[in-house]
């Protein structure tokens, strides 16, 4: 079953692309009408920030990687998620969604909470927790959001950018689940110890306050745009589908917890929405952002400029 992580690292290096490869002034920006621009702007802002936060998640994951090769792969994934955020910001600039200076949009409160939690606790989370959470986020948010975008926008530059992004994401998901297989195949006592470590109140609370409303808030935004939420649910289902293919992933307790959560997320009739997730969206919207303090400097690393001198 052993997966060749060295070969994967080489593929990742070979498949690198740059914002400088793309002609950001090519025709097609005019296909984004005023109406579409207004509708898409908050969606794009969320997308940029989710990629950016995902990048930070990989940075934490790198500190827990089981081997030097996997660590290097995560360092590349950290950079690639940042590249996706940069490219999406460049699309926003191309479509006239940013000001003259290209200042990145302000993140919503749920993203700000995610930033706070990652800064405070990200590097302290055990490998099993982060390694399970990140593929769920990637399946759910990235997968679904990107598909919405391509359905809505006909700009060829957008499609060119997302061909690159999708190809990167396919590798991310492959590695994410191969690492779960590797963890799952490890000794049982290690799985149990790491799982118990995950029951720390700040971790459980972090999941409820940050992750639960983040997904539902995104669903609300998608529904507000008039898009079928079923697509988000299909993407969440992928997490369970791919995970169930592995031989060892199912030995990981955190995987079962998140899979159960994913099942509740996709079931619109589940009391999960009524009693937990939707109230959490309303509750978190009341949190004053200034309470969260100043985020770490990585949040300022977004840029839409393909060339820096």
């Amino acid at each position: 079953m052993s997966f060749d992580f060295d070969a994967m690292l080489q593929t990742i290096k070979d498949k690198q692309w740059s914002l400088a490869d793309i002609d950001w002034d090519a025709p097609g920006a005019e296909t984004v009408t005023d109406e579409l621009r207004a509708k898409m702007k908050p969606f794009m802002a969320d997308l940029v920030w989710i990629e950016h936060v995902g990048a930070r998640g990989f940075a934490s994951l790198a500190t827990k990687a089981p081997t030097p090769t996997i660590r290097r792969i995560y360092e590349y994934f950290h950079a690639e998620e940042q590249k996706h955020a940069n490219a999406e910001l460049a699309l926003m600039k191309r479509w006239g969604m940013l000001d003259e200076d290209g200042t990145p949009p302000e993140p919503n409160i749920n993203v700000k909470l995610a930033i706070k939690v990652l800064d405070e606790y990200g590097d302290g989370l055990p490998l099993t927790g982060l390694a399970t959470l990140i593929p769920l986020l990637e399946c759910a948010l990235d997968g679904a959001l990107v598909k919405f975008l391509l359905d809505e926008v006909s700009d060829p530059v957008c499609h060119q950018v997302f061909r690159h992004i999708n190809s990167d994401e396919a590798r991310h998901i492959t590695v994410d689940f191969q690492v779960l297989e590797l963890i799952g195949a490890g000794p049982l006592h290690k799985l149990v110890i790491e799982s118990v470590a995950l029951l720390k109140p700040q971790v459980v609370l972090g999941l409820i306050v940050v992750f639960v409303p983040l997904i539902n808030k995104m669903r609300d935004n998608i529904v507000a745009m008039g898009l079928p939420e079923q697509k988000l649910y299909n993407a969440v289902k992928r997490f369970a589908t791919i995970g169930s293919r592995g031989d060892f992933t199912q030995r990981i307790p955190a995987y079962h917890v998140l899979r159960a959560q994913a099942a509740m997320v996709v079931d619109r009739t589940s009391p999960y929405h009524r009693l937990l997730a939707d109230p959490m969206v309303r509750l978190t919207s009341l949190v004053p952002a200034r309470l969260l303090g100043k985020p770490q400097a990585w949040v300022d690393e977004l840029t839409h400029e393909p060339i820096a001198s």
Binding site: Q16, W17, S18, L19, A20, Y76, A79, E80, Q82, K83, N86, A87, E301, T303, E305, P306, I307, A308, S309
Partner: peptide
């Protein structure tokens, strides 16, 4: 060129 997608000119 670095993996965050930017070309650094020097």
């Amino acid at each position: 060129r670095s993996a965050e997608g930017i070309e650094h000119r020097v």
